[in-house]
Nucleic acid binder design. Structure first.
Lengths: 233, 233
DNA sequence: AAGAAAGTCTTGGCATGCCTTATTCTATCT
DNA sequence: AGATAGAATAAGGCATGCCAAGACTTTCTT
């Protein structure tokens, strides 16, 4: 209840964003530890900051049990995520910054983007709904629609869909993908799967590639409404 | 000598920038008081910060005598000024932000602009040399060429030149000028001058205007090489 | 199911950066 | 020399981070 409006700082925004993503991965309270790992801080620091965020009304924190965002907190997180993804797209589209570098840049700019500039950018881009990595951009009123997607890890031979999304966390990975000409929007068929979590042989837009390791976890495809492929092993 | 490289913060950059502009107004050391006023801080804060800037090798500070930027300090100041003016121009040109608002926005962004983004923006703009208010933009290697200009305050009837520059400090003033269609690049003739520091009757691009008060101090004109008007009263 | 070990979280003390106010010092003007 | 304006210092606050010590919880063992 004691929501103090307009208390923001880069740190507070980063915490909110991190809690948001961790919380939506598995819908359960986020642990201090998980947060510390994600933010690359010590648990001590996180613990102290959580107390403050709670006082600010952005989270509800049950000691030793984890935190959840309040409505206010979620709003803040989505604002920052909107900033981030709009900026990523803007940097890529308008300034032709390579997509493996937009993330780090946006990470800083997201905290200083004014509402006015946000609007100008969104308008310039035609109110886009996804960023260069395929991540959905929250709308101006902070609605976020996540399409259901599946990571390549869960696919089996014969599955076929559109490569729509890839984690923006690892620039190397992004650079590799664009070098290979594998880009969101590409049509993807699974040809063969090696056993024991081995690589996947796929074709993307007609060209064959062998993808393994972290790539399988980072890349996600969307199936068409009708064709719902089924995983088993 | 004890220049610690890469120590930057928004505060440090703001101090450097402020010292740079105050120092170049009248070529003499900048007083703690003058700085405090410009930065809207107490002299106590400024005094402490100057000690630190001195230790960082950005200024040389003679207690009770004022400060001057070192080579390093000047470099930092010019970098920030370059950022600021490039951003102002970019916001105005590429995003059509009204020119009375670009200043405040740039004031924040200037501190977080990466070298890479700076380059992309400069390239996009075609390596421009002046910002929307006519302030010169330091080049990539931090050369700044200030053309000699004269404020309207010093003009007399008959003088004629090009309106090239206006202070970006006051949004109201900028809004007023653009409402009147008075924009940098305009051809300006002085028709009449009221006595006792009164207003000036001028024509800009053929339209007559009466300009007085702060406007006369904020607006500057450039004379053509040959036509050097002379002031007297 | 009790107790110990392992894992997780909080607390408290400390550091840094930058600000404020109150006080003291210096320089200069008369 | 004394008044006064300007400048420096001291002491304290807030935000955010760190580390180390201790408290709590979960899990493992028997």
């Amino acid at each position: 209840m004691a929501t103090k409006e307009n208390v923001r700082s880069a740190a507070i925004e980063d915490y909110s964003k991190a809690i948001y993503t961790l919380e939506s991965r598995a819908d359960e309270p986020v642990s201090t530890n998980a947060l510390a790992e994600r933010l690359e801080l010590t648990t001590g620091s996180v613990s102290g900051m959580l107390k403050k965020l709670d006082e600010l009304g952005l989270i509800s924190h049950v000691p030793y049990r984890g935190v959840r965002l309040t409505i206010e907190g979620r709003k803040l997180a989505l604002e920052v995520i909107r900033h981030h993804r709009l900026l990523e797209l803007y940097l890529a589209e308008a300034l032709h910054m390579p997509w493996d570098r937009v993330h780090d840049e946006a990470e800083v700019l997201e905290h200083v983007l004014s509402d006015e500039l946000e609007e100008l950018i969104a308008a310039k881009l035609g109110n886009p709904t996804v960023d260069p990595h395929g991540d959905p951009i929250p709308s101006a009123d902070l609605q976020l629609d996540e399409h259901p997607t599946r990571s390549l890890e869960s696919l089996v031979p014969g599955d076929e869909g559109t490569f729509v999304r890839v984690s923006d966390a690892d620039p190397e990975m992004l650079r590799y993908l664009s070098d290979q000409g594998i880009l969101p929007g590409g049509r993807l068929h699974v040809i063969e799967r090696q056993p024991f979590g081995g690589p996947l042989l796929v074709s993307v837009d007609g060209r064959e590639h062998t993808l393994g390791g972290g790539l399988l976890r980072a890349m996600r495809v969307e199936f068409e409404p009708s064709v719902v492929g089924e995983a088993s092993a």
